[in-house]
C-alpha cells in the first residue's frame, strides 16, 4: 500500500501515488455507503476526537459520520466554547487531549499552520480539517474523487477555480492536488482576491470570467465570505455577481459537458445562480457531499492502518 504518512496535514505532503491510494479506497467506501447496512469495523476500538476551533456544520458532520460508519468512538468538541476562551494555549489543549489517548484527532483552526503545530505535540494521527488560509486536504480529495468519477480521469483536464482565492484554503489544496495530477489549473477572480505571485505556482490567472472559463472541463466555485463583500475587497455583492457570479451565460464559455462544483455552503445569487446550482445535468454539488464522507472514511482508515503498524513496531508509546 502506498500511503505511509502518520498525519494528513496537507495535499503538499502527498505524492500522486498516495492520492490515488486514497481515492481508490474511497471508491470502495462510496459503494459501502450506498448499501442499506453502512458499517465497517475498520476503526473499531479507536477513539476519534473532532476539535473544531472554527464553526463548521458540514465538515464536522461529515467527519463524525465517517468515523461512526467505521466503528470508531467519536467525540465532538466545540473548542470555541471551551477552555480556549479561558486562555489555555493550543499546545496545552493538545497535551490535555493527548493524555486521554485518542487515536485520531480531526482539527480545524482559524490560523494557518496551527494543525501542524498541534500534530507535533501529540502521539495520535492528526487530520487537518482546514487551517486558516493554508489547506483543507480532505476537501481537495473529495473534489478529486468527484471529478474522477464524473470525468473518468483525473489528469489532462482543464479546471477553473473561481472566486475568493486569497482567503481560500480549499483553493490552495485543490490547485496543489490538481497540479500534482497533471491538470491545467486556472484561477479566476478579482485581483483583490488573488494571492500575490500565485502564477509562480504553475497556474494561469484570469480576472475575466468568460475568458477564464473558455473550454474548461470543470468549474469550481468558491464561497465568498460575507465579511469580504462590504467594499473592502470588492465594491458590492451585486457587482460581484455581475462580473464573477456563475450563471448559464458565463458557463456557456466552458465545454458543453463541463461540471460545476462548489464546496458549500453556497451564497445563491452571489457567486452562483440558484437554478444552475440545482441543475442535475451540470451541478455535482450534492455528489461532492456524498464523496466527502467516503474520502474521510478512506483517509481515517489509512491513517489508522499506519497507526497500528507503527504501534506493532513499538514506535508508539
Amino acid at each position: 500500500m502506498s500511503f505511509r504518512a502518520k498525519h494528513l496535514l496537507s495535499i503538499e505532503q502527498l505524492s500522486p501515488e498516495e492520492i490515488e491510494t486514497i481515492l481508490n479506497l474511497s471508491d470502495e467506501y462510496v459503494d459501502l455507503n450506498r448499501r442499506q447496512v453502512k458499517h465497517s469495523d475498520a476503526l473499531a476500538g479507536l477513539t476519534q476526537i473532532n476539535m473544531f476551533f472554527e464553526n463548521s456544520t458540514r465538515t464536522q458532520a461529515s467527519f463524525e459520520l465517517a468515523g461512526k460508519r467505521l466503528g470508531a468512538d467519536v467525540m465532538n468538541m466545540a473548542m470555541q466554547a471551551s477552555s480556549v476562551k479561558k486562555g489555555e494555549t493550543l499546545i496545552d489543549t493538545a497535551l490535555t487531549l493527548n493524555a486521554m489517548h485518542p487515536d485520531l484527532l480531526v482539527v480545524r483552526h482559524p490560523h494557518s499552520g496551527a494543525v501542524e503545530l498541534l500534530a507535533s505535540k501529540v502521539n495520535c494521527a492528526v487530520l487537518n480539517a482546514g487551517d486558516g488560509r493554508h489547506e483543507h486536504p480532505t476537501q481537495a480529495l473529495l473534489d478529486a474523487l468527484t471529478i474522477r468519477r464524473k470525468k473518468g480521469r483525473l489528469h489532462r483536464l482543464s479546471i477553473a477555480i473561481c472566486g475568493d482565492i486569497a482567503h481560500s484554503r480549499v483553493a490552495r489544496s485543490n490547485l496543489i492536488l490538481l497540479g500534482k495530477m497533471e491538470n491545467r489549473v486556472r484561477l479566476v477572480g478579482p485581483p483583490t482576491l488573488m494571492p500575490s505571485q500565485i502564477a509562480e505556482l504553475g497556474v494561469e490567472v484570469f480576472d475575466d470570467m468568460r475568458e477564464g472559463l473558455k473550454d474548461v472541463d470543470v468549474v469550481m466555485m468558491l464561497r465568498l465570505q460575507r465579511e469580504r463583500m462590504d467594499g473592502g475587497f470588492i465594491p458590492s455583492e451585486r457587482e460581484y455577481y455581475h462580473r464573477f457570479g456563475l450563471d448559464a451565460e458565463k458557463l456557456s464559455y466552458a465545454k458543453q459537458d463541463a461540471i460545476v462544483m462548489h464546496p458549500g455552503p453556497m451564497n445563491r445569487g452571489v457567486e452562483i445562480d440558484g437554478l444552475l446550482a440545482d441543475d442535475i445535468n451540470r451541478s455535482v454539488i450534492q455528489d461532492q457531499v456524498e464523496m466527502g464522507v467516503a474520502v474521510r472514511m478512506a483517509a481515517m482508515d489509512l491513517l489508522a492502518r499506519n497507526l497500528r503498524a507503527s504501534s506493532d513496531e513499538g514506535v508508539m508509546v
Binding site: 494557518s112 499552520g113 487551517d131 493554508h134 489547506e135 505571485q197 500565485i198 505556482l201
Partner: peptide
C-alpha cells in the same frame, strides 16, 4: 507578500 506567503496562506 509573495510566493511563500501565498503558498502558506499567511
Amino acid at each position: 507578500s509573495g510566493k511563500f506567503a501565498s503558498l502558506k496562506g499567511l
